[in-house]
Amino acid sequence: MAWLELAAGASCASRVWRRERLVGAALVALGLAGIAEPALADQNVLAADNGTVRCDASLKDLTRITLKDDQFASVSKIQTSSAAEDFQVVNEPLRGDIYLSVGSGFSRPSISFFGTTKKGFVYKFVCAVAGSEAKQVFVANADSEHPAAVGERWPVGLSEQDGAARLISAMYVQKPVEGFDITWRPLAPVNVGSLKVQLVGQYSGWSLTGKLLKLANTGNKPVTLSEDQVAPADALAVSLAQSRLEVGQETTAFVIMRAARPGDQP
């Protein structure tokens, strides 16, 4: 489940002959010689709408910023009369890129401005200024690159019981469901007798709320769980992954409730 973390490690050892060690040393030396003068790499940045793009800009040459599958529509920056603080932004109309350059004697460590794209995204740019070579920055929108998962769509007119059963199935495999907001934020556990109960996740929809609970037996003898131990009387459905817990053993429970709406009595 979401709160479990698995770790695995492995180690290996091998014996090598002296001649092989000498060949290996020679290859390492060649490798070090080959990377003594590293090439300057382009900057590829993934940015969210209304997010901040942090990049490097050239002090002595041009810096080109281009958008993936989009173009700059406008750029907003503070105008200043001081050459030590001013920089220029040119919007190239054919590809929609922008080019940055700083004035002679520029003394600030960075420049900042806002860029609005033709698709309606707005990015704040904060670029450290250094170096004499021209630089390039490629920006892709995070939502476009990694769209949100499409949730499971349920048939219209499901009964409460059918909806509760489908919700338990979705929560069991942590599948998104259309119309439900999913929260994975463990709350502080509470003790109920020898049972420790912790809410670790919740599916919140317009008519149903599903709660994922972690249960642990902290007592000194086995415990047999029942639905009324982990859910209130008005719960629509309860599912226990395991009904009997040995000492120190844990399990999960899924509790489906009617969603609270404004005006409902507590």
Score class of each variant (00 low, 15 high):
177 V>F: 01
249 Q>M: 07
151 G>D: 05
253 A>L: 02
228 D>H: 15
36 A>C: 07
252 T>G: 09
155 P>D: 03
229 Q>F: 07
38 P>H: 05
50 N>A: 15
183 T>M: 08
2 A>K: 12
261 R>K: 14
69 D>C: 06
167 L>G: 00
184 W>T: 15
229 Q>L: 13
167 L>V: 01
80 T>F: 01
195 L>D: 02
87 F>D: 00
8 A>L: 12
180 F>A: 02
40 L>S: 13
36 A>G: 05
228 D>W: 06
41 A>C: 08
255 V>F: 02
236 L>G: 03
105 G>D: 00
69 D>I: 02
195 L>F: 03
208 L>F: 04
187 L>N: 09
255 V>E: 01
226 S>K: 13
17 W>P: 14
198 Q>D: 03
42 D>G: 11
131 G>A: 05
232 P>I: 06
144 S>F: 12
262 P>M: 05
84 A>M: 04
41 A>W: 04
75 V>K: 08
141 N>Y: 06
49 D>P: 10
211 K>A: 06
67 L>T: 02
2 A>M: 08
236 L>Y: 04
157 G>L: 01
171 M>K: 03
65 I>Q: 01
188 A>L: 11
9 G>D: 08
221 K>G: 09
129 V>P: 01
162 D>P: 00
182 I>F: 10
209 T>S: 07
9 G>L: 07
53 V>R: 07
208 L>S: 01
227 E>V: 11
24 G>E: 13
8 A>F: 09
242 Q>L: 15
88 Q>Y: 14
76 S>K: 14
214 K>L: 10
138 F>G: 03
58 S>W: 01
151 G>Y: 04
181 D>V: 09
201 G>T: 04
236 L>C: 05
37 E>R: 12
28 V>R: 13
177 V>G: 00
81 S>E: 08
119 K>P: 02
178 E>F: 05
51 G>K: 13
7 A>C: 08
158 L>V: 03
144 S>C: 10
60 K>Y: 04
161 Q>S: 12
110 S>L: 07
156 V>I: 06
126 V>K: 15
186 P>T: 05
10 A>W: 09
102 V>N: 00
239 S>C: 13
184 W>F: 13
179 G>R: 00
188 A>Q: 11
246 E>M: 10
51 G>S: 14
209 T>Q: 06
113 F>I: 02
79 Q>Y: 11
142 A>F: 10
202 Q>C: 10
60 K>E: 07
88 Q>L: 15
121 F>M: 10
85 E>G: 04
242 Q>G: 12
224 T>W: 06
227 E>L: 12
197 V>E: 05
173 V>R: 09
200 V>Q: 09
49 D>I: 11
97 D>V: 03
112 S>G: 13
249 Q>E: 14
145 E>K: 14
196 K>R: 11
21 R>A: 13
230 V>M: 04
50 N>R: 15
192 V>N: 14
139 V>W: 00
258 R>T: 08
53 V>L: 09
246 E>N: 12
129 V>C: 05
223 V>K: 07
255 V>T: 01
210 G>H: 00
58 S>C: 06
170 A>V: 02
119 K>H: 09
185 R>L: 14
247 V>M: 05
198 Q>V: 03
17 W>D: 15
69 D>Q: 11
194 S>Q: 12
143 D>K: 15
6 L>H: 09
246 E>T: 04
55 C>M: 06
14 S>I: 15
202 Q>K: 13
106 F>D: 01
248 G>A: 06
195 L>T: 02
